[in-house]
Design a protein around this nucleic acid. Structure first.
Lengths: 195, 195
DNA sequence: AGTTTTACCGTAACCTCGTTACGTAACCTA
DNA sequence: TAGGTTACGTAACGAGGTTACGGTAAAACT
């Protein structure tokens, strides 16, 4: 048998960690295959063997981002009120985007021309979390309508507002941004509220 | 005096038209400086002289897109009811995105790592259109609140829903997509409605 | 008309990055 | 210790953004 393999799952994980660090510090433009390889102490072909191609790296970043988001949203303190729970969900989503702007850009904008996550498998669990919270609110008779529809609209608004805030498009002062974010969330929930 | 200039404003316009065509047919990946030059019957340095760099091309596409969107939203038939006007605005925005998916991607996602339109000058007029419609609704006592805030939230939701629809993330059947889009718009307006 | 000047133009190159062919070397076995 | 098998990294290729540079057309002057 030949020499021992170095292009293993361990390298894959190390390279992914490095790729996330590069993305956070250098931005999408700095995320090159050579940079990922160098940071992982590996050769470029090694990175290609573990990830397939560059889109594979982006895909893993994408999945890692949704796993982290899912963890953070799951770890949110439970609210006694279903509507408060939805507001907390929105705020948790917002904080994730603000703390990980580059990662959020990869997840919710598409800075890389290749790689569309058509079968939106990555975000499925996050979507489930939103739907479950909405379902709770519907069951508690605080909201009215189809939970899947409501959750989709709610998540779309929250994502849009959070991304707008992260890219400085939501206003100037901290207070006006806060106000607008909460206004959007509260108003939509009010519209969905049971008469 | 030397020979007559060819790298003029006329070339700039011709190249921009070609760039928009390339974007619409080949997508963001096909939009290379060489392709733009070739389509305009010009050399690559000629394109650089008129646009500065590739970000300059993207920037012009960006502006052209917002001009077109502005024109379409301005040309929308006037509604007798202020709320119907806002619904029509949302539908007009939606149709623009559906008819120009690649252009919308450049305008509202960020497929190009360089070039952030930080001073969102391009979208200023579109934003004004939204704000004016909201102001009309507030003046007509159909909505309550600060028009700028309402318009920002409203546009964020409409943009998010339209982009989600364009990227097949809003559902499967035409009917469910239609239903969700209208649900989102109507519910938010309901939330903003005067008691 | 011929020459000179001027500045405009496109060819061809440079650099980075995604991607991969290929020669080299490590490890096991006999 | 020789051979075979296979993993590894160097170095190259092609595409795309960007630009140096020399050729050349047109005006101006004699």
């Amino acid at each position: 048998m030949p020499r021992v393999k170095q292009r293993t799952e361990a390298l894959r994980e190390r390279a992914l960690t490095g790729a996330l660090a590069i993305l956070a510090t250098e931005g999408a433009a700095g995320l090159t295959t050579r940079a990922v390889a160098g940071r992982a102490g590996a050769s470029v072909p090694a990175v290609y063997e573990v990830f397939g191609d560059k889109a594979g790296i982006v895909r893993e970043i994408f999945f890692a981002g949704f796993r982290q988001l899912e963890d953070e949203l799951t770890a949110l303190p439970a609210a006694d009120d279903a509507l408060a729970g939805l507001r907390g969900l929105a705020e948790g989503f917002r904080q994730f985007v603000l703390r990980n702007p580059m990662l959020a850009e990869v997840m919710f904008a598409r800075p890389f021309a290749d790689f569309d996550p058509m079968p939106d498998e990555a975000g499925a669990k996050v979507r489930t979390i939103f739907t479950q919270h909405v379902r709770d609110a519907v069951d508690a008779r605080r909201l009215r309508g189809d939970p899947a529809d409501i959750a989709l609209v709610f998540r779309t608004l929250v994502e849009g507002l959070a991304m707008a805030e992260a890219t400085q498009r939501l206003g100037g002062s901290r207070q006006s941004v806060d106000r607008r974010f909460r206004l959007g969330v509260n108003t939509l929930l009010k519209g969905f509220a049971r008469a």
